[in-house]
């Protein structure tokens, strides 16, 4: 049903992933994009490539091959050590013009959502924001990009028919990350970028890491979230305790955050974080769509709510109907009794 492009794009080939990194540490979303990009590249019969920009990244570049990457385009310059919108835009533009990828995926992170639109506007192509689904239309070979809009109340599928590359930022925590395996054959292609020709008007003076309660929600395997039904800041200790015995992280609905029971960094949902842990336990959360968009793709959802008609039960895998003040302590007791622990949970991952 998608018409073919009316222009000749035979020059444009390959699926690219932007290798977002800070301090040489790749963002988790890069592995997710590699996992998804691999599928797209296979459907098209093209290569999967990573564009890696920064400083002292040679070993990182080589390591990426082990995730099923065919080519890593590496731009390694001292001046590129820290992300800078102007500098990285210039490098990405040069790479695109030089190697002509057909598709470029970036994480929908602070960096990806700043770099993506700048690059797309420079090369005058389309960019689909914050995608949660990607596919290749089998007839036309065009990238189908699905994304939530209107706060997750609708899903739109978007195409970029007559421009290349087709660019998308992709929400974190939605795609399954690629696994590391040995035996892949790929190559690292060093691309020399003349840093001195840049006339930068942007200077990053300082990068400050803030230790906000050590919440790495996006990376947790188990998340226990509390909502308005928890009742008070004091009572949030129930949520923390359950998270602790399971070796998980603590999440929250906006109602709990707005009440000041827990800092914003814990908020899951449209205006908070998007997570997809193995187990998401929603306690006293009704299941408003703005919350659901942030956790719907969790593998297993357990809902605890005293209202049997709460919408959260429509998305839950398992539902417990009753007062969380009784259910949670009973769960903690049972976990301890059964000897389920962090170790038990993580042994299941491998």
């Amino acid at each position: 049903r998608i018409e073919k492009s009316t222009r000749d794009f035979t020059d444009y080939k390959d699926v690219w992933v932007f290798g977002e990194q800070r301090n040489g540490q790749l963002n988790q979303v890069v592995y997710e994009l590699i996992g998804e990009g691999r599928k797209l590249a296979n459907k098209l019969g093209e290569n999967l490539c990573v564009a890696l920009i920064g400083n002292k990244l040679t070993s990182k570049a080589k390591d990426l091959i082990n995730y099923g990457v065919d080519k890593v385009y590496l731009v390694d310059e001292e001046g590129l050590a820290i992300y800078n919108d102007e500098a990285y835009t210039a490098v990405m533009t040069e790479l695109i013009n030089c190697y002509k990828p057909s598709i470029i995926l970036l994480g929908a992170t602070a960096i990806g959502r700043s770099l993506g639109p700048r690059v797309a506007a420079r090369i005058k192509t389309g960019l689909t924001a914050d995608c949660t689904g990607l596919d290749i239309d089998s007839e036309s070979g065009i990238l189908l990009q699905t994304r939530p809009a209107f706060g997750g109340n609708i899903m739109a599928t978007i195409v970029c028919k007559n421009h290349r590359p087709q660019m998308a930022t992709v929400r974190q925590g939605v795609m399954k990350p690629a696994k590391r395996k040995s035996g892949y054959n790929g190559q690292v292609i060093k691309h020399h970028f003349d840093y001195n020709k840049l006339n930068l008007r942007t200077r990053v003076l300082k990068v400050v890491e803030e230790i906000t309660d050590m919440v790495k929600l996006e990376e947790a395997d188990i998340i226990v979230s509390g909502g308005r039904g928890v009742g008070s800041a004091e009572n949030f200790k129930l949520i923390r305790e359950l998270a602790e015995v399971l070796g998980g992280a603590v999440g929250a609905s906006r109602a709990a955050v707005d009440n000041g029971w827990i800092p914003y960094a814990h908020q899951v949902g449209q205006t908070g974080k998007t997570v997809s842990p193995k187990i998401y336990i929603a306690c006293g959360i009704s299941g408003a769509v703005q919350h659901l968009v942030g956790m719907r793709s969790s593998d297993v959802i357990i809902a605890i709510n005293k209202d049997p008609n709460a919408p959260i039960f429509n998305v839950a895998t398992y539902g417990l109907v009753g007062d969380l003040n009784q259910i949670i302590p009973a769960m903690i007791k049972e976990i301890k009794l059964r000897g389920l622990s962090e170790a038990a949970a993580s042994s299941e991952n491998s």
Binding site: R1, I2, K124, T125, G126, L127, T128, L144, P148, G152, N153, I154, M155, A156, T157, I158, V159, C160, K161, N162, H163, L292, R296, I301, P308, P311, F313, N314, V315, A316, T317, Y318, G319, L320, V321
Partner: peptide
Amino acid sequence: PTQVVSITTPKFEAKTQI
């Protein structure tokens, strides 16, 4: 360059065991 080709309301379907 971008074109919206379809719009749907997301369906939440889960086989919930209560």
